[in-house]
Amino acid sequence: MRIILVGWGVVGQGFAQILLRRKMELVKDYGFRPRIVAVVDKEGAIIDPKGLDLEQMLSLKAEKGTISTKSKNGCLGRSALDVMESMEAEALVEVTPTNIKDGEPALSHIKTAFKTGKHVVTTNKGPLALALPALTELADYNNVQLRFSGTVGAGTPVLEFAKKCLVGDSILSIQGILNGTTNYILSEMDEKHISFQEALKDAQKLGYAEANPTMDVDGLDAAAKLVIMANWIMHKKVTLKDVKIKGIRDVTPEDLEDAAAKGSTIKLVGSIEENLKVEPTQISRHDPMAVGGALNAVTFVSEFAGEQTIIGRGAGGLETASAILRDLLDIKENIASKMIA
């Protein structure tokens, strides 16, 4: 399978590392032979229709900071859209940073991939939170597939668990801690009795939070994930506008102490019932969802199988990249079985 990789940050490089490490097993166990024919980042592209040497690519980035300069197949300034329109490939892997305002440039990347007949695997929440119903329709119309397992729970198979493991059952509601950064901050505030500001500073020092933490602490990241789950798992045609969002800036150490007195704690919980909302919520310390640190946890309430909670790391380059690989294998399996039938 020929793949155009757009985005060469931690996730993009993590994906390359996994492909390198699992090369033999992928062919032997899954008949999967991925070839990255182009990598595009902000500065330009590097291409090879036969497949790029990933080892060399990884060391290039480490040495020179960017991939498109100085290398033999590099084309400085070449855009992802141009690469997608001019190069043959079966799939686009879109791992550019999330933009929650208008979803760009990822939204254009995905639409162009569809138009040029490419399947899409993305870890970018922006386009999905803003336009998932439109994108799935466009994918169907162009007879290609759209996968985005890595958008929720990183490597933890949250979406697949609901979609595949609970197949046949009806999922009534979903509740979850969907953002690792805020969970880390709240856990720290709870354990160390410190203020939000102090906990945020610690988190930024440790690399759990961005310099501009708005996406995380104001609940937007969790809300975007909620939208994706509502669409994909519960077939609700909703976008980010439909979510009631409240972040954790106003949570005080006193709130947490009050909750602790009742045997509870405060978590930033996203829930899908009648409506979609993200807000700081008191939950029992014995609730399986009450996980510490930067972990994520999602509880599904299904009609027959009851409650299940899936817990795992919710961020990380390799973790998210592992979801991309699962998605690609799923796509291959789907097209191959269609063919045989």
Binding site: M1, V27, Y30, G31, F32, R33, P49
Partner: peptide, 21 residues
């Protein structure tokens, strides 16, 4: 060539009977 290899990979590789393309 590249298109042919890719499509054979995707559809037939690993389906028991075909081990190599």
């Amino acid at each position: 060539l590249e298109r042919a290899v890719s499509t054979l990979d995707i559809h037939l590789l690993g389906r028991d009977f075909i081990r190599e393309v």
